[in-house]
Deep mutational scan, measured.
Amino acid sequence: MGFKLLSKLLVYLTASIMAIASPLAFSVDSSGEYPTVSEIPVGEVRLYQIADGVWSHIATQSFDGAVYPSNGLIVRDGDELLLIDTAWGAKNTAALLAEIEKQIGLPVTRAVSTHFHDDRVGGVDVLRAAGVATYASPSTRRLAEVEGNEIPTHSLEGLSSSGDAVRFGPVELFYPGAAHSTDNLIVYVPSASVLYGGCAIYELSRTSAGNVADADLAEWPTSIERIQQHYPEAQFVIPGHGLPGGLDLLKHTTNVVKAHTNRSVVE
């Protein structure tokens, strides 16, 4: 069995187990497998329904001669939608809004960016022009300005110390501490036991640490421990890039980060 097929099978099995364990909360999309990078042309966006009122959005972007996937989250909030992270750029984010209108038909009224990198804030200006209120932590807003990236308009308070959590509509926002970046936030959907790890969490097929220019490698494993301790009931975990899975993604990420750190020390 090929690795790609095995990865998709694991996603399907995880979703099936969740649907059985929580039949009222989960209505997993039966329309197909989780979209992969090879299936999404740059400039297009796919939506994948995880649970009743919960979707991931998947886009792709060219970077350094390669094409990478990027995940975000959409959560229903009454007759409105909360968006977590842009679709990595203005063109993708405009396509995301169009796809949401086509498939869901509810307005996106608020959006949260989970850290300051372009795959999370690139497209904020498109959201703002569409009347979406954009939010991020003060740290993310400051770092985005320093980096020359787009800056969300509103500040999220109460997320300055490791372990801080605040309720934001249908989700809980959690600051686990520094990891992929010093400002990275985690998003949890309690009604569906869905954990969105953003770039602080890796997919299972990833074996290298990737972009760690703004990471705190020493603190990252401790931050992941905080996530595990705060959300032990999480059933569906979405990484910032690639295929979702279960809580095993947290341990896998820790292993990859520690291996990278150990290699760096040896070198």
Rank of each mutant, 00 (worst) to 15 (best):
P152V: 04
W220V: 10
H117P: 00
K8G: 06
L173P: 00
L82R: 10
F174V: 11
A136C: 02
G32D: 05
L82C: 14
S137D: 03
E145W: 11
V37K: 13
E147I: 14
P107R: 12
A51V: 10
S155E: 03
R167A: 07
G242K: 04
A130D: 02
G53W: 09
S208D: 10
H154R: 10
S30W: 13
L249T: 14
A66M: 07
G2R: 05
L185E: 04
V45Y: 03
Q103P: 03
V126M: 14
A51E: 08
S181C: 13
L10G: 07
E233V: 06
Y175H: 06
T253W: 08
L6M: 10
D29V: 08
E145Y: 12
F3M: 12
V28G: 09
A66D: 06
A259T: 03
S31M: 14
G65M: 03
Y48I: 09
L195S: 06
E150Y: 00
A129L: 15
H241C: 01
V187W: 01
I84S: 09
S30V: 04
T140W: 10
V67Y: 10
A129H: 09
L97V: 02
I58L: 03
R141S: 11
T93H: 00
S181H: 01
V11S: 08
E80T: 13
T93P: 00
V37A: 07
A130Y: 12
P23A: 08
A144N: 14
I151M: 05
V75C: 09
S137H: 15
Q228T: 15
D119Q: 01
D118R: 11
Q103A: 05
Q49Y: 02
T36P: 12
I74C: 11
I17Y: 05
L5T: 11
L81S: 10
G89I: 01
V187F: 01
S38E: 07
A21V: 12
G32I: 00
A165Q: 12
G246F: 12
A179R: 00
A179E: 02
E33Q: 09
G131A: 09
D52L: 09
R128S: 12
Y188S: 12
R128M: 05
T254C: 07
M18F: 15
D164P: 07
N262I: 04
V121K: 06
A200N: 02
V121I: 15
E219C: 05
T153P: 12
A136Y: 01
I227C: 12
S16H: 15
G198C: 03
L5D: 06
W88M: 01
H241D: 03
L204Q: 10
E80H: 13
L217W: 08
S193K: 11
A129R: 05
G246N: 06
E267Y: 04
P138A: 01
A218S: 10
I17Q: 10
V75Y: 08
T134D: 12
P107T: 05
G122S: 05
D183T: 00
R142Y: 08
T134E: 12
D248A: 04
V28E: 08
G43F: 02
V28Y: 15
N149V: 10
D79Y: 10
E147R: 03
L204P: 15
S181R: 02
T222W: 12
I50T: 07
G65L: 07
I224H: 04
L82K: 02
S30R: 07
P176N: 07
C199N: 02
V42Q: 14
T140C: 02
P244M: 14
N262T: 11
G210D: 05
G158V: 10
T109P: 11
Y188L: 11
R76K: 11
S22F: 01
A209D: 09
L24A: 11
A95G: 12
V256S: 10
A192D: 03
V266P: 02
A90L: 06
A209K: 04
V212M: 10
L83E: 13
I58G: 06
T254Y: 04
D248S: 13
R263L: 04
L185C: 05
I40A: 11
S193P: 12
